[in-house]
């Protein structure tokens, strides 16, 4: 049998024998970023559609989580940097070719906007809130007058943030598993789905819960469709992509992916949400909690499996 044996004298830490440069910080950030993007997307969308009163949790309450999610995510990103004191270099240049570059700028824009959104809805949480200073009251009135414009900006930037979480990976042709443009829409859909799950968890309004259960069902359907297409693409592609897919088709990531992401994180909660819409009494927390868990594990699996996939030479 013809065999090829490769012996390399290189043993650089975190590079060999297998790339291990990104750890828990990156998938955690991608999860938090996608979730924040999804929550802001729904808040902005239903404001533009004039349905704030119909979906109060999605528009007014869930967005209060976003600044915390983003700050936590940014903290994770910061911890990930090896040359931390130079992080400000991200903001001395605009590099459109670098997904991490424009991702950093997107965060720079959307994080303050999430604070603005909370400020506009602060009286929902604290009915006696007083801005104290006249200029703050004037500023709030000005922003409220232009809430539709702000909503459109948030809508667009939330989509960019959601897609970016996937494109960050898909831009690397060195890692065949990541190098599929489906990851952008797939991560966006997953982020929207986890956001819908959070709204279902927080909402006390059955009409809103059912609406978001329907939205989540649709998003889970899209996710499953994209996952199937991702594997079809890999298996119809070059050897390195076939090898990448085999990490999930009998390889070390088979169980985490198909059991925890696809079955328990997508298919099972979809069934529970379907039954709830059909009028069965379901515990409110189980389906959304599973969706959130599935979304988090999904990002961990893709981050680690991607680093295990490579070109052979």
């Amino acid at each position: 049998m013809r065999e090829e044996l490769i012996v390399s004298g290189r043993m650089n830490h975190l590079i060999d024998p297998q790339l291990n440069i990104w750890h828990w910080q990156i998938p955690l950030y991608l999860f938090l970023g996608g979730l924040a993007a999804g929550i802001l997307f729904f808040a902005a969308l239903f404001t533009i559609l004039g349905k704030e009163k119909e979906y109060p949790t999605a528009v007014r309450i869930a967005p209060f989580l976003v600044p915390f999610l983003l700050i936590l995510g940014l903290l994770a990103l910061f911890i990930d940097l090896n040359h931390k004191l130079y992080f400000w270099r991200l903001y001395t240049i605009i590099r459109l070719q670098s997904p991490m570059g424009w991702g950093a700028w997107t965060l720079m824009i959307i994080t303050p906007l999430s604070f603005v959104w909370c400020a506009l809805n602060i009286k929902t949480i604290f009915p006696n809130w007083n801005w104290k200073y006249n200029w703050l009251i004037d500023l709030e009135a000005f922003l409220r007058k232009h809430v539709i414009v702000i909503s459109w900006i948030i809508l667009i930037y939330s989509l960019i943030l959601g897609v970016y979480t996937g494109i960050l990976f898909s831009a690397f042709n060195a890692r065949p598993l990541w190098n599929t443009s489906i990851l952008g829409p797939l991560f966006l859909t997953s982020g929207l789905s986890t956001a819908a799950a959070v709204v279902i968890m927080m909402s006390k309004n059955i009409h809103e819960r059912h609406k978001f259960a329907r939205i989540d069902l649709m998003l889970i359907g899209i996710e499953l469709f994209l996952i199937v297409h991702m594997f079809m693409g890999f298996l119809a592609s070059a050897q390195v992509q076939i090898d990448a897919a085999s990490l999930f088709l009998g390889g070390p990531y088979t169980t985490p992916f198909w059991l925890f992401v696809v079955t328990l994180g997508l298919a099972f909660p979809a069934l529970l949400e379907f039954l709830e819409i059909k009028g069965f009494k379901m515990p409110v927390f189980i389906a959304p909690a599973l969706v959130l868990m599935g979304g988090l594990i999904f990002r961990f699996v893709i981050a680690y499996a991607g680093q295990a996939s490579r070109w052979l030479y």
């Binding site: 975190l14 590079i15 060999d16 990104w22 940097l81 090896n82 270099r89 670098s98 042709n173 060195a174």
Partner: peptide
């Protein structure tokens, strides 16, 4: 080195794995 933030993107992007994180961060 004093522009590098040590994010690791270039390391992940290299098909030859020719880069490594220097212990000083960059």
């Amino acid at each position: 080195p004093n522009k590098c933030i040590g994010c690791g993107a270039c390391i992940a992007s290299c098909p030859y794995d020719a880069r490594y994180p220097h212990p000083d961060g960059y």
